[in-house]
Simulated scan of single mutants.
Amino acid sequence: MKILVLNGSPKHEKSDTMHITRAFLDGMKEAAPQEIRIVDIIDKHIEYCTGCFTCKRNGGKCIHNDDMKELLSEVLESDLLLFSYPLYCYGMPAPMKAFADRTMPLSSMAMKKQGDRYVHVGQANFSHLKFMMICGCGFPNSKQNFEPAVMQFKLMFPNNHTIITVPESPMFNAPEAAEVTVPRSELVKQGGKQYAETGEIDEKLLAEICSPMIPEDVYAEICNKEM
């Protein structure tokens, strides 16, 4: 499988969330050989979308001459598009949001009804693509936290999507937390292997991966002591 990983964290490989993503990819590689390319979005030149819709009217050509043209080509050549990012203000970090906004050239101005909503008709064929979101955050709670980002991702990619959200993710960068992070990484790895083999993750395993690693109040107390 050809996998394009979009790392939305400005921390590059030191991203808390990328620890989770790498464990998932390791699991996938255990199941079968994978062709993986990781792109640090923060390092790419991506201008903000101006909403001019030129791209939707002229076959996908954007007014900006930056790295998005190459990135969109890589997207269309991939089998799995994996968004890995920390939760910023209940959504994507700004550089990744800029990337998402600039995917406009993939669709045209024409609209069609899909289910109970209208969507733009595609200018490119990406029906083969699968989509994954792996998102971590520094809060201990799973609920009343990830919902906006999850809903956005589901609306962006209504088909073939898988979503992993992990609270307490800064612990993956703390060696002293290995007692709980190593077993959780193994669960994530198991999820990656399962996904590579079947195209999905068992609901029970997914729920376990997305749950807090230690009691919420204990985690909050540890974080407050380190301030």
Rank of each mutant, 00 (worst) to 15 (best):
K112P: 01
K113C: 02
K113H: 02
Q114I: 10
G115K: 07
R117E: 07
R117W: 10
A124N: 05
F126I: 07
H128P: 00
L129N: 08
F131H: 08
M133I: 12
C135D: 04
C137V: 04
F139S: 09
P140G: 11
N141I: 11
K143A: 14
M151S: 11
Q152N: 12
F153S: 04
F153P: 01
F157I: 01
P158Q: 07
N159C: 11
N160A: 12
N160E: 13
T162V: 12
I164S: 03
E168K: 04
P170W: 00
M171S: 01
N173S: 02
P175C: 05
E176N: 12
A177V: 02
E179H: 13
V180A: 05
T181V: 00
V182I: 14
P183I: 03
R184V: 05
S185Y: 09
L187K: 12
L187W: 04
Q190C: 09
G191R: 12
Q194F: 14
Y195S: 07
A196N: 05
E197A: 15
E197R: 15
E200L: 10
I201A: 07
K204M: 06
L205D: 04
L205I: 06
L206V: 07
C210R: 05
C210Y: 04
I214D: 00
I214T: 02
I214H: 00
